[in-house]
């Protein structure tokens, strides 16, 4: 059986909010190392991969592999009943029909309990190859969100060019063009404001802004975002979850291909 307790319901609320624009139904795969999720969007352009490590919970118990097939809009409805600061416990039997969610207010004066019906989801998992990316950029997550939203006013796609000079996000549309260039800089007092660029070779790729803006729904989960790029492979956009236990929310986006 599964029994996992999260100190802050907010974490799951925000994860579900961040992915529900891309994915309708998906399996939450639970095993002794934690809760994982992998799903493509309907048009097979983007892939979401989440890992919530057992260490993110206290306590965490899962004796055998359990797949919780969940409709995300139903889960969103149930999670609306949880206050952000509530303690959230997820429970399921070994071959479950439902997942049980308990929300406890931090003052412990109220306990809410919901059973969410599960679905059978026959989901194919993709093998994500280990990639040595040519460029990786670590930057404030809100800055990335702002750039994507601003450039979406200009065009439906953005080119991301990374050179030793910096990273340039550029869009060209009917009304004109726009670009934002970021150079590497460190902010000692506010490290979350730093921009770090790790480059082994220059990269230039184009991506759909609609998807990138969708990914940035995860902004409130982490102060930083990491973009990893190599020519002719999907972009990786990564948010760290729940600090320091290597839990993550990753989005992969297939590039646009010139003809």
């Amino acid at each position: 059986m599964l029994e996992s307790r999260l100190e802050q319901a907010d974490l799951l609320k925000k994860v579900v909010e961040a992915i529900s624009g891309l994915v309708n139904d998906c399996n939450f795969d639970c095993n002794d190392s934690g809760i994982a999720l992998q799903a493509m969007d309907n048009s097979h352009v983007a892939l979401v991969s989440m890992m919530l490590k057992a260490e993110a919970f206290s306590p965490y118990r899962c004796d055998r592999n359990i797949a919780l097939g969940i409709n995300l809009s139903s889960l969103t409805k149930v999670l609306r009943a949880a206050q952000s600061s509530d303690i959230l416990t997820l429970k399921a039997e070994d071959a479950p029909d439902v997942v049980n969610l308990v929300f406890e207010s931090s003052e412990k004066d109220r306990i809410s309990e919901y059973d969410l019906k599960l679905m059978d989801i026959d989901q194919e998992h993709l093998g994500i190859p280990e990639t040595e990316y040519a460029a990786s950029i670590s930057m404030p997550s809100n800055e990335f969100q702002r750039i994507c939203k601003d450039l979406m006013n200009i065009s439906e796609s953005v080119s991301i060019e990374c050179t030793k000079e910096g990273v340039k996000f550029a869009a060209a549309g009917d009304i004109g063009t726009g670009s934002v260039t970021l150079k590497q800089h460190s902010n000692v007092d506010k490290p979350e404001q730093s921009v770090e660029i790790d480059l082994s070779e220059p990269v230039a790729l184009s991506f759909s802004l609609k998807y990138l803006v969708n990914f940035t729904k995860a902004t409130s989960l982490a102060s930083k975002v990491k973009l990893s790029l190599s020519n002719e492979v999907p972009l990786l956009v990564e948010y760290e979850l729940s600090g320091g236990n290597s839990s993550y929310l990753r989005f992969y986006l297939a590039p646009k291909i010139g003809d």
């Binding site: 493509m40 097979h44 352009v45 983007a46 892939l47 194919e124 998992h125 993709l126 093998g127 994500i128 190859p129 796609s157 184009s206 759909s208 492979v233 999907p234 992969y252 986006l253 297939a254 590039p255 646009k256 291909i257 010139g258 003809d259």
Partner: peptide
């Protein structure tokens, strides 16, 4: 003009 690639052409089925 550019075409949107599919994620499945990069990541194979397991």
């Amino acid at each position: 003009p550019s075409k949107q690639g599919s994620i499945m052409s990069f990541f194979g089925k397991k």
